[in-house]
Structure formats: structure tokens, C-alpha cells
Amino acid sequence: MSDFSLNIREKGDVVVIETTGYLNNVGGEKVSEACCEKMDDGKKYFLLNLENSKVVNSIGVSILIEIIEKLQDVDGKLGYYNLAPIVEKTFNIMGLTKYSTVYSSEAEGLDGMA
């Protein structure tokens, strides 16, 4: 089984989650659990750094749709940066970019979430 890990930090009101590994069902659930825990603490702005997750599948990405849905309920936002081109294309095909934002860098993401 592939390893998947998260590094979570906060920059002001924004929770930055850096993922490492294959974003499949297991990885997606880990991201979802991390977001839910932070949402329970009142956080509603999340920025995912996917630099080290260059391989994804639609099951993992579907779990990001669940996160978007939960954030819509609290007027929150989900963003991403450092996406591999194929990951961004997958997000476009699946429509995630209609409801969340791809940024070119962490700084742009933090500005966009402000």
C-alpha cells in the first residue's frame, strides 16, 4: 500500500495542508479528516499544497468534492497550489475548479483566501 502523509500548519486564518503520496481513497480520507478536525475548531479556509502528490485518482478527488460541500455550509473556501499539470486537468474535467481555486503559489493562495 502506498504511503500518504500530511503536514498541517496555519497561516493566519488559513490552514495549509501539504500532502505527500498518492491521493487515492486513503489519502483523500486523511485530507478530509484533517479538514474536519480544523473545521471543528472554527477554521474554514484551506489551502492544499499538492507538490508531492503528482498521482491522484478519481476516488481521492471525489473526497475533495465532499470537503468543498462541507465548506459551502460554513461559507468557507478550498484552494490548491503546486499542482502537476495532469492533476489540474483532472480537477478541471471533474469540475472542482468551478467551486474551488487553483493558485500558482502559496503566497497567491493566502492572498486569495484573505
Partner: peptide, 19 residues
Amino acid sequence: PKIEEKLGSDHKRGWGLQL
């Protein structure tokens, strides 16, 4: 699949063939 229909639905998966 359409994301507009997936949001609010219990079934978020089913994207493989489309991709």
C-alpha cells in the same frame, strides 16, 4: 457525472469513464 449534481448527493464517485 456533473459536479453540480454530485454536490448535495451521497454519491460523489463515478468519474472514471468520463476521465
